[in-house]
Design a protein around this nucleic acid. Sequence first.
DNA 1: CGCTAATTGAGAATGAGTTTCAAAATCCCC
DNA 2: GGGGATTTTGAAACTCATTCTCAATTAGCG
Lengths: 156, 156
Amino acid sequence: MHRVKDKLSTADRFAIFKEHLRRQRLKSTAQRDDIARAFFANNSHSSVEEIYTAVKHINPGIGYATVYRTMKLLKECGLAVERHFRDGEARYESGVNREHHDHLICEGCGKIVEFEEARIEALQDEIARRLGFHLNSHKMELYGYCRDCHRARAAG
Amino acid sequence: MHRVKDKLSTADRFAIFKEHLRRQRLKSTAQRDDIARAFFANNSHSSVEEIYTAVKHINPGIGYATVYRTMKLLKECGLAVERHFRDGEARYESGVNREHHDHLICEGCGKIVEFEEARIEALQDEIARRLGFHLNSHKMELYGYCRDCHRARAAG
DNA sequence: CGCTAATTGAGAATGAGTTTCAAAATCCCC
DNA sequence: GGGGATTTTGAAACTCATTCTCAATTAGCG
């Protein structure tokens, strides 16, 4: 298990995005660029609201709908992966050149930590096979308190 | 890994429910009884809509809000556990005397299969410990095609 | 039985996300 | 570089699941 990291520069991501637009005969617009830029710049697991707020600083005219529409495009070309944790709103993480990973979520401060564990994946495959399933994907989330929040609760 | 099963009769469940109402100084009503009965009778993983429809047959006057309110009570006393799979609507399973288990979901027909796997739980604990977390709960869902749906797709 | 607090159903409200539509922008051919 | 068809945009309306509000009804203690 090692630190998951991205291998593409922002420029590379932009190129992938533009290429996707071209292929789909869609147009390149300032709004789309601004939203993509904000998403690429943001730390991972940002919500639509967070991205919307960030883009507003650059381009105050932008609307919520355009952010949703653009995130959909970024998903289509693999640059964004949508996740749904407990709070109900979608969160997006960078999606290219990433190892498969799962999440550990702090119920105190909301921090999200990623991890990989090949032994769990192997067991999942084994279980699916035993029950006659052909696996497409999976979702695993661990919920608890991070060290700091645990300590704070013990003290408080 | 063995078949997960419930150990309480419907009468036992009713007793637990009534006891919960008494403790909270809440009232026993025909609507609450009908909804609880429908939930206990139903196969697991039913949605609010399914429960609502089932209760309507017995008691056509019932409202959606009352079903939601009663499911909340059933959760509070541990008789129901709420799950959120990919389709977005809450599903409820029977919650007393059950081993912890996870789910395997068919993306073809929607079938939900439960399983237990102690080795995965052990690995989850190990990972959490390594990353400094104190685990409260977890969620693991495997998505794929069941044998029948896989065959149908290969054929079709 | 009578009273007070809890409960109900209907419909309004919510919140995340999507759709609609008229106005504005892009890009492709000349 | 300038049409002009086609896409895109923002605002507002709409979904869909769920929750809230409120006036009318009901449970259950005394």
